[in-house]
């Protein structure tokens, strides 16, 4: 039981990170129906920016987090403007291939400049460990979960209480109608990318602190898993992405914790395929049929 609880604690920490990345996927998918393959790489770059801010500029956790989020927001908007915007109205496959291209571009440009080697984050947060019975929780885990929850609350506020959020919801339901109602669709899409990317940047910094190692290809797997999380929760659905992220994080740590860590990725992918086949609309998603 202790073992199980411990894995739950670890799973929730990891899951918070997946959830943060998954939010970006789900928001972008919700608004332009694109699996933004480059999203995992934005998260990778967020980790590097956090690394630079803490190592070279000697900044603390919070400033590094904010800088990384801001820089990733700009990066996300730039990607959208350069690569995706010219493709409005082309096939979804064309946009998906472009997203794969952007992903490769970010990975190898980073590799070109910072090298392929793994780097370690400086110690930013104390390693103090709290004992709850036999379950261990360290400060980093608390920071991760608290930051993730704070950001998610902020997002819910933006989406449901602000004008921008209203515009985002309108565009995601019907882009043309939103345009006719005077909503600046392009700006709204930009903002969506900015927010999603900022969250990925935050996740990057958190992962750097948690795992203490970053490399240019680190975004591929968490990116895919966060996408799976988004699908599980119901793609396009914000609370769904949070639940999905947590679920994937917990599933992964449980599989590893019980000694099957080599099969961890396979289990997650098998889970994805099961969801896609059994309930492609996900936990909280809606089913949409093609009109004949």
């Amino acid at each position: 039981m202790d073992q199980f609880m411990q894995q739950m604690v670890n799973g929730i920490s990891l899951g918070s990170i997946y959830a943060l990345i998954a939010l970006g996927y789900t928001m972008v998918y919700g608004i332009i129906k694109l699996i933004n393959f480059a999203h995992g790489d934005v998260y990778m770059i967020g980790a590097y920016i956090g690394f630079a801010a803490t190592t070279y500029a000697q900044l603390g956790f919070l400033p590094a987090l904010l800088i990384s989020m801001a820089a990733c927001a700009v990066l996300g908007m730039t990607i959208e403007r350069i690569a995706y915007k010219p493709l409005r109205g082309s096939t979804r496959i064309a946009v998906l291939i472009t997203a794969i291209g952007v992903s490769l571009f970010l990975e190898y440009v980073m590799m070109f400049f910072v090298g392929a080697e793994v780097r370690s984050y400086p110690v930013l947060l104390s390693n103090k460990v709290f004992h709850l019975g036999n379950v261990l929780i360290n400060t980093q885990q608390i920071y991760i979960v608290v930051t993730a929850i704070a950001l998610m609350i902020l997002l819910q506020f933006i989406v449901h209480k602000t004008k921008t959020g209203k515009a985002m919801r309108a565009v995601s339901i019907d882009r043309d109608a939103a345009q006719l109602m005077g909503i600046k669709v392009d700006n709204t899409i930009s903002i969506t990318f900015a927010i999603g990317s900022a969250f990925a940047g935050a996740a990057g910094v958190l992962v750097g602190i948690y795992y203490n190692s970053i490399d240019p290809l680190m975004g591929i797997m968490p990116g895919l898993k966060a996408f799976i999380a988004a699908v599980f929760g119901g793609i396009g659905n914000i609370p769904g992405a949070m639940i999905g992220g947590m679920a994937i994080g917990i599933m992964e740590t449980l599989v590893s914790g019980y000694g099957y860590s080599l099969y961890r990725d396979a289990v997650v992918f098998a889970f994805l395929i099961l969801i896609l086949i059994l309930k492609p609309s996900g936990l909280l998603g809606k089913n949409i049929r093609e009109k004949v």
Partner: peptide
């Protein structure tokens, strides 16, 4: 790295200009 960057740029440019 250069090769992969080239691949990436080719993918994006083709999709935008000659899908």
């Amino acid at each position: 790295e250069i090769r992969m960057i080239l691949y990436a740029v080719v993918l994006i440019v083709i999709m935008i200009f000659r899908p």
